[in-house]
Design a protein around this nucleic acid. Structure first.
Lengths: 148, 148
DNA sequence: CGTTATCGTAGAGAACGTCAACGATGGAGG
DNA sequence: CCTCCATCGTTGACGTTCTCTACGATAACG
């Protein structure tokens, strides 16, 4: 009567599933010079025309702001994004995707999507939607990530 | 029409949810001198009377064998497990929980379970079961974790 | 008996998480 | 206007985790 068979633990399964997917996606993105981390940031930068502040990036990605600095440094050096000054607040810098960045993002999107689809193939489309919905509620139901 | 809104991406949600739960669980287990990592290993060691080989530990936890060494070192130094020679194979060492280890495991189980329940409270019991089932299929549907 | 594979171990290097501090700017109040 | 406090980006540090390589000891196979 141990309700805690590790392999039935939601937390463990979450870590395990996440780890497997991240690993596979990293391998696929390596061909594009990206990792899951940088890809996510790039994707967000591509999301808005004007760019997104590093603080917003940190909040959405659930990272410490100091990590975002390095991430943006890396993407900037690769010529995929650029830091633009905000017009309304001279402290904030908007991270905006360059032309090359948008192109790389599209390519990476295909690569990541393929791995993604492959790993989720064991689930039906409906099940994938279910999973997405459940995880979504799990994530938003939580307090701030780091540095409230 | 971008099908890739990061916050709707299953992989991203997986990482995010996993990260949040691990962080919270680590905080809760800190009072018992454990982390999620060591707790998982301890739980497995407590699972079988004779103990479990480090190799099996690595496979189940999805870790590199070299990490298991450090993990078991740590647990051994804390007096929670001990390495026993296997009778059938002198190469393998069986990791078995001590009395103290089993006690610590039970206490940690309660602490982890509480955090667990709290973070999953946004889902109904049925939804939690659904999630567990979906994740389970996702995990087993994958190839070997590290070093096949 | 020799070759090949496996188990545990050790070590290194990169990526990641977490925290503390600082300069520059913005905002609120006297 | 000036002062106090909050925020944004940045830097630095320290510990954890991932990944890979190599090695000694033992096992399994030919």
């Amino acid at each position: 009567m141990d309700g805690t068979t590790l392999t039935d633990d939601v937390g463990f399964l979450l870590s395990r599933a996440s780890g497997l997917l991240v690993r596979a996606t990293n391998a696929a993105l390596a061909a594009h010079g990206l990792r899951v981390r940088s890809y996510s940031a790039l994707l967000l930068a591509c999301g808005s025309e004007a760019g997104m502040s590093q603080r917003d990036l940190a909040v959405i990605l659930g990272l410490d702001p100091s990590q975002v600095v390095l991430l943006v440094d890396e993407l900037t050096e690769a010529g995929l994004v650029e830091r633009r000054p905000s017009e309304s607040d001279r402290r904030t810098k908007l991270v905006a995707a360059t032309q090359a960045g948008r192109a790389a993002c599209r390519a990476a999107e295909r690569a990541a999507g393929a791995v993604h689809a492959e790993h989720l193939a064991v689930l039906t489309g409906e099940e994938q939607a279910q999973l997405r919905a459940l995880l979504g509620r799990l994530v938003v139901g939580e307090p701030a990530p780091a540095r409230t």
